[in-house]
């Protein structure tokens, strides 16, 4: 990979000011949306639906920032791998820790 001319000089011409402003608009709308949705009780769908929606919006916003502001979209595969791996490892930490908490005796988190 070191000598692969493909990946080197990250080309600069894929983002233009209108595109940056477009991504920015998505982020602002997402922020307002997440604020607004949080005031509505979504528990009638299922308990905790509010959190799920909030996290979905947050992930969308994060994806926008990473892909376009941080130029991951145009980056070499290795950088995609670094991003995916770090989230995957965080997921391992969440999953295995919660696997313990969710299976404690009779659902009680004894301390």
């Amino acid at each position: 990979m070191a000598k692969d001319p493909e990946h080197v000089h990250m080309e600069h011409d894929h983002m233009t000011i209108p595109k940056y402003l477009g991504v920015f608009a998505v982020l602002v709308v997402g922020t307002i949306l997440t604020y607004w949705v949080a005031t509505i009780d979504l528990d009638f769908i299922f308990p905790g639906a509010n959190t799920l929606v909030a996290l979905l919006i947050a992930f969308t916003k994060m994806a926008c920032v990473m892909l376009f502001f941080m130029h991951v979209y145009w980056s070499p595969k290795l950088i995609w791998l670094a991003v995916v791996a770090s989230f995957f490892w965080m997921a391992i930490m969440f999953a295995f820790t919660m696997a313990d908490y969710f299976t404690r005796a009779t659902g009680v988190f004894t301390t």
Binding site: W89, I92, F96, A99, D100, R104, T110
Partner: peptide, 22 residues
């Protein structure tokens, strides 16, 4: 190596089901 840390906690109050996986 990242998937086995619970084997240090078999007797510390960890859920038995988690212990089995670990």
């Amino acid at each position: 190596g990242f998937l086995v840390w619970g084997h240090h906690m078999f007797v510390s109050g960890q859920s038995i089901y988690a212990s089995m996986v670990f």
